[in-house]
Design a protein around this nucleic acid. Structure first.
Length: 354
DNA sequence: TACGCGTGGAC
DNA sequence: TGTCCAAGCGT
């Protein structure tokens, strides 16, 4: 089969598959609504794309609804206090996304008159919006003929063409291969169809090659080695770190503090605690960092938490008392309004079960 | 280019 | 207390 003919067939079969069994997502305009004239709202699409970065649809969905209920348009979000946005994001992870989300909303209001840029190049200048997100928003909302490449697309294309180079070095090659096939006429549908194919059919493990619309062309599939692609550099083992936090309760309030704006969990709240180091410290050494000299009780079991690049074990110490002025006393009845990451919520639960 | 950056689910 | 992974971005 000639290459140009194959590309036509790849486009046709993928879009036919999408039209027949495209999945429904909360932020996706359904075909019947589109036929009735409904247009994708860039604010809603932007919000969904930022949340979906490295995050599963099932994790994103409740947050997406919550954000839209609290802040129905970009102006509402821009006017909200940043800490309120961080608190609403708490639990979703990768908190730089929330900081950039709020910053971006402010830019849209201050520099763009409340209207999102309508080109890939314009979107790319926004904080938190990279090559994937710019391509996705511009094609989905404005029909621009972009080349959407996310992790799903990388997997599908690397299998289709049996790309031998290892990720992440193979990115440039995969991007070029994907761009040749991308359909400029239905750019948004094509991109979403390809991502759906990756997430539902061409999965990392146990790909369903038998029901893939691209089975006729897939080199790795035909060779029976789809699961071996994409080739990747093997990851190093995750280091371990240890630390301690202090849960000080007084009159229905607990002592919190805010983390520095940059770096891990930047701008989020936390229980006061020690630095996190490579070695387990003795109890008296940990207690030297306590916010007070109360009679601390140690939880029997450490709280464990897995970050992207290390695993953390936290000792949790509990005490009662209010003679501390450095920090923020947070009401236990309204902890959900604080920007507490999952790690700290785990530690709080552990302290409360003591 | 390579690394830092969360979390929870599937296996 | 294992491994891998998810609609990536910023530095």
């Amino acid at each position: 089969m000639k290459s140009s003919q194959q590309i036509v067939r790849l486009r046709k079969t993928l879009l036919a598959h999408y039209d027949a069994c495209g999945r429904s997502l909360p932020w996706r305009i359904r075909p019947e609504d589109r036929a009735a004239g409904v247009i994708a709202d860039p604010y809603k699409v932007w919000l969904s794309e930022i949340m979906c970065q490295q995050t599963t649809v099932s994790a994103v969905t409740p947050y997406w609804h919550k954000f839209l209920q609290k802040w129905p348009c970009v102006e509402n979000l821009a006017c909200a206090p940043r800490d309120e946005v961080l608190a609403a994001w708490a639990g979703l992870g990768y908190y730089a996304r929330a900081r950039n989300l709020h910053k971006c909303a402010g830019m849209i209001m201050d520099e763009f008159g409340g209207v999102f840029p309508n080109t890939e190049a314009g979107l790319l200048k926004l904080p938190g919006v990279g090559p994937y997100t710019a391509a996705a928003i511009s094609s989905i909302c404005y029909g621009e003929a972009t080349n959407i490449v996310d992790g799903n697309v990388e997997r599908v294309i690397s299998r289709l063409r049996m790309v031998q180079a290892l990720l992440p070095k193979a990115r440039t090659e995969i991007r070029i291969l994907a761009g040749v096939i991308a359909d400029p006429k239905r750019a948004g549908d094509y991109g979403q169809a390809l991502m759906d194919l990756g997430s539902q059919v061409c999965k990392p493990k146990n790909p369903k090659c038998g029901m893939c619309p691209w089975e006729f062309a897939c080199l790795a599939g035909k060779a029976g080695v789809a699961e071996d692609y994409p080739k990747k550099i093997k990851k190093q083992t995750r280091p371990v770190r240890y630390g301690a936090v202090f849960y000080l309760e007084n009159g229905g309030e607990i002592l919190l503090r805010r983390r520095p704006d940059k770096g891990l969990l930047g701008g989020m709240m936390e229980l006061p605690g020690t630095e996190w180091g490579a070695e387990r410290e003795a109890v008296d050494k940990m207690l030297a960092h306590a916010p007070s000299s109360h009679n601390w009780q140690q939880c029997a079991k450490e709280v464990s938490h897995v970050f992207t690049h290390f695993t953390l074990y936290l000792n949790v110490f509990v005490a009662q008392g209010g003679d501390v002025n450095t920090g923020i006393w947070a009401s236990l009845d309204r902890l959900d309004t604080y920007a507490l990451p999952s790690l700290m919520r785990k530690a709080i639960r552990s302290a409360q079960s003591l």
